[in-house]
């Protein structure tokens, strides 16, 4: 058995990580965490997580940048906000998860071809271009980019049910004000720099 050190020494941590996350939207209160674990025990996804929410907050507070950003936890968070409404320290935990997702995407720290960040990115691309989402197109793009197309076949029974009940369409949805939307996207991009 290969036994390795499980705890990082102080010089291996990122001392500026807490300050960085605190500056992000809705993350201001994060250092009020008392590590009570209400979030982890409330979370319906905890049983699937490598590090439950309490640990993620602990990582951030103590400069464990890599651990926080590479954890599966942020991607399993389905934004049910249960932890957030229950947190006695009033930390907006779901919003902290969003902030970590953005950090992870920006720094390209997530599993290769992992479907959740891909879905998020593809959907925002569609919206920025067309102003609307087109469900079937989004799903097709996602399968092409993340899974083997073979997996799409497994979804056929579901697709047929939707088709039979008139709940699926291949048409591309677009808004009329696309020019305005493009101007908005450009303005936000320029301002963000």
């Amino acid at each position: 058995m290969d036994i390795q050190r499980k705890v990082k020494y102080e010089h291996e941590l990122d001392p500026g990580f807490l300050a960085k996350i605190k500056r992000l939207s809705h993350c201001e209160e994060i250092d009020r965490c008392i590590q009570c674990g209400t979030c982890s025990s409330s979370c319906p996804m905890s049983v699937y997580m490598d590090h439950p929410p309490r640990q993620i907050i602990g990582f951030i507070k103590n400069g464990y940048r890599e651990e926080a950003l590479s954890s599966f936890t942020v991607w399993l968070c389905s934004s049910c906000y249960t932890c957030q409404v229950r947190c006695p320290a009033k930390i907006k935990i779901t919003d902290v998860m969003y902030a970590l997702k953005r950090e992870a995407i920006e720094n390209k720290i997530y599993p290769h071809r992992f479907s959740i960040p891909l879905l998020d990115k593809e959907m925002t691309k569609l919206i920025a271009r067309d102003g609307r989402n087109s469900e079937m197109r989004l799903i097709l793009r996602l399968y092409l980019k993340s899974f083997k197309p073979f997996n799409l076949l497994k979804m056929t029974p579901l697709g047929l049910k939707l088709m039979k009940t008139g709940r699926m369409s291949l048409k591309r949805n677009r808004i009329k004000g696309r020019k305005q939307l493009r101007a908005l996207v450009k303005a936000i991009k320029e301002n963000g720099k």
């Binding site: 925002t124 919206i127 936000i188």
Partner: peptide, 25 residues
């Protein structure tokens, strides 16, 4: 009239400013 998609959970995960902007429209 001419509403656009709200961005759902996707925009919050990718770009916080755009998330607010598409809703703002």
């Amino acid at each position: 009239e001419d509403w656009n998609c709200c961005g759902a959970t996707a925009y919050f995960s990718v770009d916080n400013d755009m998330a607010a902007a598409v809703c703002g429209r």
